[in-house]
């Protein structure tokens, strides 16, 4: 098999789907965060793959670099929130935080 763009895209799609699944179904707030990371990584793979096979340049990679950085920042903030949540509610169960309900 000639490894080409579709393969990478497939992997990234699978990763994205998995990440989505994790976000939707995980009870643990950190688990949800992990799902988000998966999704971000999936999109990163996409960027790099496209820059490698279609664009033949490095723009996608630069994008991927930015995504990584921002993902890190976002992870930091998110985890801070998780910690605050843990402090306030005593648990990281996502269902405890439902003040938006009704």
């Amino acid at each position: 098999m000639n490894v080409g763009l579709p393969h990478f895209l497939t992997i990234s799609a699978a990763l994205f789907a998995l990440g989505l699944f994790a976000v939707m179904s995980r009870r643990n707030a950190i688990g949800i965060l992990m799902g988000v990371e998966l999704m971000l990584n999936a999109s990163n793979i996409n960027f790099v793959a496209f820059s490698r096979y279609v664009q033949h340049g490095i723009d996608g990679q630069i994008m991927a670099a930015f995504v990584i950085v921002l993902a890190a920042a976002e992870a930091a903030v998110a985890l801070a929130i998780v910690l605050a949540m843990f402090r306030n509610f005593g648990t990281v169960h996502a269902d405890t935080v439902q003040s938006l309900k009704r």
């Binding site: 950190i30 992990m34 990371e37 993902a71 890190a72 992870a75 985890l79 910690l83 843990f86």
Partner: peptide, 16 residues
């Protein structure tokens, strides 16, 4: 990712 984010995640996991 691995050296920063993942470590952070693991830290938080442990703490919570």
């Amino acid at each position: 990712y691995i050296g920063g984010v993942l470590v952070l995640v693991l830290f938080t996991v442990m703490m919570t």
